[in-house]
Simulated scan of single mutants.
Amino acid sequence: MILSHKHRYIFLHCRKTAGSSISVSLARDLGPDDLQLSGLKETHQAGIAYTRRVMREALQLHDRAGAKRIEDRLHLSGMLGSERRAERARKLIHRRYKDILGDYPYHARASAIADAFPTEWREYRKFCVVRNPWDKVISDYHWRTRDTDQPPSFEQFVKAIRDGDRLGGIVPGEPDNWPLYTIDDQFAVDDVIRFEDMQVQLNAVLSDLGVAWDGWLPRAKKRKTDASGQQKNAAVYTAELADIVGQLFQREAEAFGYSEPAKLSEQ
């Protein structure tokens, strides 16, 4: 999530829709009082500084013990290096906003943002990106198992989402993007950009906002491949798995006319 007072917009970060890449790109033109919660690690890696607000609010955790607060200040001073400074700021700002926006402040729900920032929610332009759920689940599977030596199969991953099984943290806590841009099942944003036409539609929104965007979208999160260049773990839909995903994300699929893959495995 990004809340920009400079350009009067709220970017709602839906999962696996290039949200981190968009956040890094937008971070280049944020004002000092703008709040960025998405893509902070990738923003630092791109050599872009956090906003003054992020750094200031990272220290506003009054429930921390005195020794811990001294340690926070030591990290944020930069005396231990820029990497540790950025990492500590990211952790602290996320912890601070968990109490305000829920367990995943970078993927905050529309209702939580509306409650936390009612004036900005009413007056600023709000936009997000959506993606075909079947493609999103495959992307999520590759990302969530990228560092796992013995990853679950794609079938296990899909069925774990259905069953509410986190698989030790591999399955995301909130896999459905629908609550991130709707309130009471109604669209709560001004612009819903399709992942499939993201460059054109995002450029149109940002142009209306007066943001001079050059179209740069870094590959913020890279997938691992094997020696042949293929994805590390196979993800193939059977009819059963495609049907499970269709049921899990039915509201989003129907709202945007998304359909299941044309080719399904016969296994």
Rank of each mutant, 00 (worst) to 15 (best):
M1Y: 10
L3E: 04
K6C: 10
R8S: 14
F11L: 06
A18Y: 00
G19N: 07
S20Q: 14
I22H: 08
I22P: 03
V24C: 02
L30P: 02
Q36R: 08
S38P: 04
G39C: 11
H44W: 15
I48W: 05
R56N: 09
A58Y: 06
R69F: 07
L74H: 11
M79R: 13
G81L: 07
G81F: 11
S82F: 07
R85P: 00
L92H: 03
D99H: 10
L101A: 09
Y104P: 00
A108K: 04
R109Q: 10
D115C: 09
F117E: 12
F117C: 09
E120A: 15
W121P: 05
R125H: 13
F127P: 00
W134Q: 00
S139F: 02
D140H: 06
T145M: 01
T148A: 05
P151V: 08
P152I: 02
R162T: 00
L167Q: 00
G169N: 07
I170L: 03
W178L: 05
L180H: 12
A188N: 08
F195W: 11
D197F: 12
A212N: 14
W216D: 14
A220D: 00
A234H: 02
A234W: 01
Y237K: 06
T238N: 04
V245A: 04
Q250T: 13
A253Q: 06
L264H: 07
